[in-house]
């Protein structure tokens, strides 16, 4: 690795690719992309030492819109792939991105276990409470009475998934919530999440103007959480279970050490093979 102190400062453009996103005009994900690029600029990580891993869905297209390394994998498995990358290559800065369907439904098991495992990486979920790419079905965070989907015309009737509370219970080491339109606020959350050791989870409320146009109103509802971040699990638990889903900011900062895969080295393979000798 070259000495970064000598290198010229990297700019927003250093992290941006020239691809035009596939998203609908007005999609919250444009803002989140900008926030990620701003955060990377703030962090000054080299693009070649950074990777963004995603699954499938509208927001999972993000890696291609950056100039860092990326992996656009299969539906729901971004966290597993990202964990493998970070464990095999601890020198890299690893982010995982995706949507609420990808992360909490098909990828729900990996979400829990990524929180538990606490590998040093940052997971950004653009939550719009809908499957956009498949044209508007209810996701795990959709309200039970939402009747906008042909698949569940009477609504799902199922309580929404509580991603932050679940992340806390499962062991995430940093939990935050942002609102897409607040680009600087989200960028700050991401920057802090990356800097904080262990698994950082950031939920970004990112309106889907096509299938959930009513989410345009979120801008009038979201508010900075009226409290300071806590590292107390019980306080955070009460806070997350009690809020209405629109309090933004850092909501929990844990102090667990990051998980690293054991790797000592230094033994010759021939030495290991001696254990098989008669």
């Amino acid at each position: 690795m070259a000495d970064t102190s000598e290198a010229p400062r990297l700019t927003f453009r250093s992290y941006k690719s020239d691809y035009k996103p596939v998203w609908c005009p007005g999609c919250g994900d444009f803002s989140v992309l900008n926030s990620i690029l701003k955060a990377l600029t703030e962090l000054q990580v080299k693009p070649e030492d950074t990777a963004i891993i995603s699954g499938i869905g509208c927001s999972s297209r993000i890696p291609a819109y950056t100039s860092v390394y990326g992996f656009h994998g299969v539906h729901g498995r971004a966290l597993a792939l990202a964990s493998g990358l970070k464990l095999a290559r601890p020198d890299l800065t690893v982010l995982a991105t995706g949507g609420d369907g990808d992360g909490f439904s098909i990828g729900g098991n990996h979400f829990m276990h990524a929180c538990r495992r606490n590998v040093d990486m940052t997971y950004i979920v653009m939550d719009n409470q809908v499957y956009g790419m498949t044209k508007g079905q209810a996701s795990p965070t959709t309200a039970p009475e939402w009747e906008g989907s042909k698949l569940t015309p009477q609504g799902t009737g199922i309580n929404p998934f509580q991603p932050l509370a679940i992340a806390l219970a499962a062991g995430a080491n940093f939990i935050g919530r942002g609102f897409a339109a607040d680009q600087n606020g989200v960028a700050k959350l991401i920057t802090e999440g990356v800097r904080h050791p262990g698994f950082s989870f950031i939920q970004v409320l990112s309106p889907c103007v096509t299938f959930r146009p009513e989410q345009r109103d979120w801008r009038d509802i979201v508010r900075p959480a009226p409290v300071e971040p806590t590292s107390n699990l019980s306080t955070a638990g009460k806070r997350l279970m009690g809020d209405d889903g629109f309090n933004t900011g850092v909501l929990f900062i844990g102090n667990r050490p990051s998980y690293v895969a054991e790797s000592g080295g230094g033994t010759d393979l021939a030495e290991i093979e001696k254990s098989f000798a008669l």
């Binding site: 992996f71 729901g76 792939l81 964990s83 493998g84 464990l87 990996h110 276990h113």
Partner: peptide, 14 residues
């Protein structure tokens, strides 16, 4: 599902 993806992630890392 995770183990194969973790292995793919490690390999992507070289």
């Amino acid at each position: 599902l995770a183990s194969i993806n973790m292995a793919i992630g490690g390999s992507f890392g070289g």
